[in-house]
Simulated scan of single mutants.
Amino acid sequence: MITGFGLVPIHGIILIECIIMVVTSSKIMRQFIKNSINCNQDCSLKTSSSENVPPCKKCNMKIIGNVLVSEPSIENLEDNRKLQKTFTGWKKTNHNHVINFLNLHSDKNWHILDVGTGSHNLSEIYPDINPNQYYTLDIQNNNHLDIICDLTKSQPLKEIFDVIICLNVLEHVYNYNDFLNNTLKMLKPNGYFLFAVPYHSGLHQTPYDYFRYSNFALEKIFTEHKLEIIEIEPVHNGFNPWASLSTYKTLIRNNNNLLSTLTTFMLNMSILISRIAYKINRDIIIDGHYSEIDEQKKNQHPELKLKSTPTGYVGTLKKL
């Protein structure tokens, strides 16, 4: 192919275009964040064009490698991404909740903030999300983020986002009222808050696993924060009574003695028998969980849905 650079292979052109797209996207994201920093107009972060800016004397935030940082203890960014190749049914349900909502409003030119992003950038996983209008925030030091901030302590940006995503975060925030106050201050009036929280779930990310919210608690908390509840839906990810058995088996098999060996064998047999029983009769309910058939027929059996224990809750809220 002949270009302004002379004879260049087609794959070279593609590479150049990809680099231009990445750089352009990065600049757009940084400028949007800079313009929206929760500080005065003469904030040193807004007026500087450098990729590294020392703390502003007014807002005490700084820029490190184009990442807005509100944590004074962070001096250098780290590369801590641990990407998963597969997701659990629960995580897939969370993602589907977000994607389905955004697809319903695909005509909107929304700016989206993902709070508690962790290692995953949803715009890298789902093409439905425009990376130029998707922004990431977490408390952890990670160089792939747009913002590093403890939202229980401060509000880094102004009221600029149309949608805020908060998946599997609230259970890890002890001061959840402060967290919600600062988070919702970045959401525009009539903006949407999409969330997911586990309920029937084991401890994870310990020791920072504090709460399991029922739908009654969620309704009360969100109403107190002036959010209109559009939906709060329980999620049932199928029949899984052997999960607890498997966890128990993992705990005891480290003891290298005859009793633990026999106990492990018995647990394996229990898991095997329960799986066979489930295959034979897939509409049974054990331990308050849905089977797949119950999930398919939940509209016909609302009383089962009310009595069963959900894996967690997903919801859509609107800022009043």
Rank of each mutant, 00 (worst) to 15 (best):
L194S: 02
G118W: 02
K92Q: 15
H95P: 01
G191Q: 00
H105C: 07
I13V: 14
Q133L: 08
S25A: 09
I20Y: 08
H172P: 09
K279T: 11
K158F: 01
E295M: 13
Q133T: 10
H204P: 03
D162V: 04
S291M: 06
S244R: 11
S270N: 12
L194T: 02
G312V: 03
V98W: 02
V8M: 11
Y290A: 07
H301G: 01
L245S: 09
G315R: 03
E224P: 02
H204D: 04
L203E: 14
T117Q: 02
N190R: 12
K57E: 11
L170Y: 01
N237L: 05
I284V: 13
N175L: 15
N240W: 08
D150R: 02
H105M: 05
Y248N: 03
N38K: 10
L104P: 00
H120F: 12
N35L: 13
I276Y: 14
N181P: 00
N94Q: 15
I112T: 00
G191V: 00
L45N: 10
H172V: 08
G191C: 01
N94T: 13
D162N: 15
E78F: 11
F265A: 15
N299R: 10
I37L: 02
I139S: 02
K108T: 09
S214P: 05
G65F: 05
F5A: 10
S48W: 01
L113I: 04
L203A: 14
G6D: 04
N254Y: 12
D114Y: 03
H200V: 01
N132T: 05
F87G: 03
P241S: 04
V69Y: 03
K85N: 15
K307H: 06
S214F: 09
V115F: 00
F101Y: 14
L45D: 02
Y176Q: 07
L259W: 10
H204K: 08
K62D: 13
N38C: 10
W90L: 07
I33L: 15
Y210W: 15
N94M: 15
F222W: 06
Q300Y: 11
K307L: 15
L203H: 13
F179K: 02
S244E: 10
I230H: 05
T47I: 14
G191D: 00
C149E: 03
T86H: 07
K305E: 14
I232K: 03
H120S: 06
S70R: 01
S154C: 09
I164Q: 03
L180G: 02
T152E: 09
L184R: 01
I125C: 06
T152K: 04
L320Y: 12
Y213C: 00
Y248P: 00
I13Q: 11
N103A: 07
Y176L: 07
T152S: 11
P9Q: 06
P234L: 04
K185Q: 13
L15T: 12
Q140H: 13
I63T: 06
Y126T: 09
R212P: 04
K318G: 00
D287E: 11
K249M: 12
I64C: 03
D287L: 10
T88K: 05
Y278I: 05
I148M: 05
I276D: 10
K297C: 12
R253E: 14
L15P: 00
T3Q: 06
C39T: 05
Q41V: 14
L320E: 11
I28W: 06
P189S: 13
W90D: 05
M269S: 10
L317V: 06
H225I: 04
T311Y: 07
